[in-house]
C-alpha cells in the first residue's frame, strides 16, 4: 500500500475527499480487493477507537483566583485619574519652571546696566537680589531713570510700583537717605508676587491636584481588588 492511497482511503472514510476524487477512488475500490480490504481495516480501527469509553473527569478543574494568580481588572475611572494626575503634575512643573525662569532672567538683564545707572552715588553694598526692586528704588531717586528701567524690564509692574512708591515716599533727599534701605526690603515681596506670570495660588492648586489625583489613582485599584477578593473568598 503506497502512502498516497492510504491517505486517500483514510480521507474517503472521513468524507474529506472532493466528489471527483471520491468517484475515482470508488471505481478503484470496486476493482481492487486489496484496496477494499485496507479501507475495511481503517474503518474497523476507527470504529474501535470510537468505542472507547468516555471517561468523566475525576474532579472539577475549575480555577480559583489563587490558582490563576488573578489580578482583578482596575476600575474604568483609574485611567482618567492617571491622566488627570499627569496633566496636573505637568502644569505644576511648567508653572514652577516659568516662574523660575522669569525670576532668573530679570536680574541678569538688569545687572549689566545697573552699576552704570547707579553711578558714584549708589552704595556698592546695595543688594542685587531683585532688579525690579532696585529699579523701583532708582525711580524714587532720579526721575530720569524710569525710561531706562522700562527698556530693561519690559514689564509695566515697576512703573506702577515706582508710581506707588513716589506717592507714599517724600521726594526730599533727607527722607530718601532715611528710607532707602527699608524701601528695598519692603518692596521685595511685592515684586515677587507681581513679577510671577503664574500666580502662586495656581501653582499650589496644581500641586494639590496632582497629589490628589495620584493618590486616588493608586487607592482605587487596591480598594477594588480587596473588595473582589472578599467576594471571591465568600464564594
Amino acid at each position: 500500500m503506497n502512502p498516497r492511497d492510504l491517505e486517500l482511503l483514510s480521507a474517503y472514510l472521513d468524507g474529506q475527499l472532493n466528489p471527483s476524487d471520491s468517484a475515482r477512488l470508488e471505481v478503484r475500490l470496486a476493482a481492487d480487493e486489496s484496496l477494499h480490504s485496507v479501507l475495511s481495516d481503517l474503518r474497523s480501527t476507527r470504529g474501535l477507537l470510537r468505542q472507547l469509553p468516555f471517561r468523566r473527569a475525576p474532579r472539577n478543574f475549575t480555577l480559583t483566583p489563587q490558582m490563576a494568580r488573578l489580578k482583578p481588572p482596575a476600575p474604568r475611572t483609574v485611567p482618567v485619574f492617571r491622566f488627570a494626575t499627569a496633566l496636573a503634575a505637568f502644569l505644576f512643573v511648567i508653572s514652577i519652571a516659568i516662574n523660575g525662569l522669569v525670576s532668573f532672567s530679570a536680574p541678569n538683564l538688569a545687572s549689566a546696566p545697573f552699576p552704570a545707572a547707579m553711578g558714584a552715588g549708589a552704595p556698592q553694598s546695595v543688594p542685587q537680589e531683585s532688579a525690579l526692586a532696585t529699579l523701583a528704588m532708582l525711580a524714587t531717586q532720579s526721575p530720569a531713570l524710569p525710561p531706562a528701567a522700562d527698556n530693561l524690564t519690559e514689564t509695566p509692574a515697576p512703573r506702577a510700583m515706582s508710581a506707588a512708591l513716589m506717592d507714599t515716599e517724600t521726594p526730599t533727599p533727607e527722607a530718601e537717605s532715611k528710607s532707602n534701605a527699608p524701601q528695598v526690603q519692603n518692596s521685595q515681596p511685592v515684586n515677587n508676587q507681581t513679577s510671577s506670570p503664574v500666580p502662586l495660588d495656581l501653582e499650589i492648586l496644581f500641586g494639590i491636584l496632582a497629589f490628589g489625583f495620584g493618590l486616588t489613582a493608586w487607592i482605587l485599584p487596591h480598594a477594588n481588588e480587596s473588595n473582589l477578593r472578599k467576594k471571591w473568598n465568600k464564594k
Binding site: 492510504l6 482511503l9 485496507v38 481503517l42 474497523s44
Partner: peptide, 16 residues
C-alpha cells in the same frame, strides 16, 4: 494531519 491520521490508523490496526 491527513497523512498522520492515515498512518496512525494503519499502525493501530497492525498493533491490534
Amino acid at each position: 494531519i491527513k497523512s498522520r491520521l492515515a498512518r496512525a490508523r494503519l499502525r493501530l490496526r497492525e498493533c491490534l
